[in-house]
Computed example of a mutant assay.
Amino acid sequence: MTGDEKRVVVETAPGGAVLIRVRGSLDGWSGSTELADALTGAADGGGSRTVVDLSGVEFADSAWLHALLDGRRQHGAAGIPLVLAGPMTATVHRLLEVTGTLGAFQVADTVDSAFTW
């Protein structure tokens, strides 16, 4: 990933959904704030669902996880499904497993399958 590339990109997806593509390393110093902002915008935007593409995340820490959990809460309050899509790296999957938060999210194997639920 070059310095010019965005770590978090928000796209409009078919059916009024929002796709948030996340790339690179996300931690308290980079990317987590952008993810939190994107999730808040998606929850406030009233879309049909939000899909977070995690296939490009190489590293994540507790700040990233906090952003996801806050996003989950916001989406739940707004009545909008939030789906995490992979394939996830072993590092990201392990973080969700170890913290006991994997079961708190709807998880799809791929971005395409996340839109078919």
Rank of each mutant, 00 (worst) to 15 (best):
T2Q: 07
T2F: 08
G3M: 14
D4L: 13
D4E: 13
D4V: 04
K6E: 14
V8S: 01
E11M: 07
T12A: 15
A13H: 10
A13W: 11
P14E: 11
G16F: 02
A17T: 06
A17Y: 09
V18N: 06
V18S: 07
L19T: 02
R21K: 15
R21Q: 14
R21W: 08
V22F: 13
R23M: 02
G24H: 09
L26E: 02
D27P: 04
S30T: 10
S30K: 15
G31V: 12
G31Y: 04
G31D: 06
S32I: 04
S32Y: 01
E34A: 10
L35A: 00
A36W: 03
D37G: 13
A38Q: 05
L39N: 06
L39Y: 08
G41H: 08
G41S: 04
G41A: 14
D44S: 12
D44K: 15
G45K: 10
G45P: 12
G45C: 06
G45R: 12
G46H: 09
G47S: 15
S48V: 08
T50Q: 10
T50L: 12
V51H: 03
V52H: 05
V52A: 12
D53M: 07
D53F: 09
L54K: 00
G56Q: 02
V57Q: 03
V57T: 01
E58K: 14
F59D: 06
F59V: 06
F59A: 05
A60D: 01
A60P: 03
A63H: 05
W64R: 02
W64E: 01
L65C: 11
H66Y: 05
L69C: 09
D70Q: 14
D70Y: 01
G71V: 00
G71S: 02
G71A: 07
H75N: 11
G76R: 15
G76T: 11
A78H: 01
G79S: 10
I80F: 07
I80K: 10
L82T: 05
L82E: 06
L84F: 07
L84H: 11
L84W: 09
A85W: 00
A85Y: 06
G86R: 06
P87T: 02
M88N: 06
A90D: 09
T91Q: 14
V92N: 03
H93W: 12
R94S: 10
L96T: 04
L96G: 05
E97T: 14
V98C: 03
V98P: 04
T99K: 13
T99Y: 00
G100E: 08
G100M: 14
G100W: 11
T101N: 10
T101P: 09
T101W: 09
G103L: 08
G103Y: 08
A104W: 05
F105M: 11
F105T: 03
Q106K: 09
V107T: 13
A108E: 10
D109S: 13
T110I: 00
T110W: 02
T110M: 05
T110A: 04
V111Y: 02
D112N: 04
S113L: 15
S113Q: 15
A114T: 06
A114G: 03
F115R: 09
T116N: 07
W117N: 12
